[in-house]
Design a protein around this nucleic acid. Structure first.
Lengths: 204, 204
DNA sequence: GATGTAGGCGTACGCCGTACACCAACCAGC
DNA sequence: GCTGGTTGGTGTACGGCGTACGCCTACATC
C-alpha cells in the first residue's frame, strides 16, 4: 500500500550520464543529477545507496549500448575478438569522461561480465584455455582499459601529443619525433594496431 | 631580501605520498598534507599552484624511484623492453593507490618522459620505426597503465576475482572457471604473460 | 636599526556527500 | 468514500573539501 515511485534507476543513470557528458566527470554530483531530474538531492538516495552505486549504474548504461549479438561464427577467432573489443571501445568512446569509472566498476556491471564471457567463449573455441586463457583475457582487458584512458586523458595522440612533440629534440630525440609521427596516425589506427599486436602474440 | 622558505616541493611530495600510502588516494587532501608537514593548509600554495600540481609532484616522485641506467645492451631488445616495463610496474606497485594519478599526470612527469624516450631508443634500435613505433609505444603504454590499474582496482586477480569466481556457472561458465584459474596464476605472471604477448606480436 | 619583500597563516565562501526527521501521497480494507 | 499504514520525497544541517583574500611577521639587505 505504499506510495508509488516517481523515478526509475534507469532515469538516474541517464540523468547522471547527461551531466557527465555535458560537464565532465568532475561535474558529476548528487545535486547536479537531482537538478537534472527536477527532484531533490535526497530523493536519489531512495534509489541508490550512495554515489558509488550511481556511478555503477552509469557504467552499466554505457556498456549496455554495446551490440550483444555473438560475432559471425564463420569469421576467424582473431576477427571475432577484434569485433568484441571494438564494441567495448566504441561504447566507452561515446562517453569519454566515464572511462575512469569503468575501471572501478567494471566487475560489478552485468553487461561487462557478459562481454567478458563472450570473449572467453571465443578464446576457448580457438583452443586457448588454462593459464593461457587467463593471461589472454587479462591482457586484452588491460590493454582496452589502458588504451581508452590514454586516448582521452593523457594521450600520445590528442592534445597531450602536441606538448610532447614540442619537447626539445636535443633532450628527447625519439620521443619528440614519435609524437610528431603520432599526429598522423589517428587514434583508431593506433588502437587497432596495438590490439593487432596482442592478437598476433596470442596466435603464435 | 625575502624571508627564506621553510619547505621544499620535495617535502610536499613526500608528505602527500605518505598520506596516500597510509589513507589511500581518497585520503589525500591539502589539509591532510599540511598537517603531515606541521604547516598550515594555505602554506602549501606557496609551493604549488593547486592540488593538481601537487598530484603531479607525487607521480614524479613515484616514477622517480625507477632505475634509470640503460638496460644491458647485449641483451635482446625484447628483454630490454621487458626490463623497462617491469621497472615502471614495480615503481607504481610500491604505491598502488597512486596508479590512477599516473594516467592523468604521466605526460607532465619528466621522469615518465625520460622513461618513454629510453623505450623508444630500444625499439628504434630493434628496427622498429615510423608508424610501427608509434603503435608499439602506445600499445606498451596502454597495456602497462591498464594492467596496473586492473591489478589494484578492479582486478581479475585479487579480491574482485573471488566475486567473479562465485558467479553462477550456469550463466557464466567460462568466466567463473577462468576466475578460479586466475587465482592460481598470480599477478606477476599475469602481467608478464600479457607483456610477452605484446612483445611477440611486435617481433613477428 | 630601519626597510621592503615575500612566506606563513586565519578566515571565509561555496561546493561536496549524506544522516536524520518530517510530511504527504498513495493503496488496501472497510 | 473514508481512513490508516506505509513509504517516497524533501529541507535542514554537519563535517569535509579546494582555495581566494588579506594580514602579519621573519628575514636579508642597507
Amino acid at each position: 500500500m505504499p506510495r508509488p515511485r516517481s523515478l526509475t534507476r534507469n532515469q538516474l543513470a541517464a540523468a547522471a550520464l547527461a551531466v557527465i557528458d555535458r560537464e565532465g566527470l568532475a561535474g558529476l554530483s548528487m545535486r547536479a543529477v537531482a537538478k537534472e531530474l527536477g527532484a531533490s538531492t535526497m530523493a536519489l538516495y531512495r534509489y541508490v545507496q550512495d554515489r558509488e552505486e550511481l556511478e555503477g549504474l552509469v557504467v552499466d548504461r554505457v556498456l549496455g549500448a554495446m551490440d550483444t549479438e555473438p560475432p559471425d561464427p564463420a569469421a576467424p577467432w582473431q576477427e571475432r575478438v577484434e569485433v568484441l573489443v571494438r564494441r567495448m571501445r566504441d561504447a566507452v568512446s561515446a562517453h569519454p569522461s566515464v572511462a575512469p569509472l569503468t575501471v572501478t566498476h567494471r566487475h560489478r556491471s552485468p553487461v561487462g561480465l557478459r562481454w567478458a564471457e563472450t570473449v572467453l567463449a571465443v578464446l576457448t573455441e580457438a583452443g586457448i584455455d588454462g593459464e593461457r586463457r587467463v593471461v589472454a583475457l587479462r591482457g586484452l582487458l588491460g590493454y582496452v582499459i589502458g588504451a581508452i584512458q590514454l586516448e582521452h586523458l593523457g594521450p600520445l595522440s590528442g592534445r597531450g601529443t602536441d606538448v610532447i612533440a614540442e619537447l626539445p629534440p636535443s633532450a628527447f630525440p625519439y620521443l619528440s619525433a614519435t609524437a610528431r609521427q603520432a599526429r598522423e596516425v589517428g587514434p583508431e589506427a593506433e588502437f587497432l594496431g596495438g590490439l593487432a599486436l596482442l592478437l598476433r602474440g596470442l596466435t603464435a
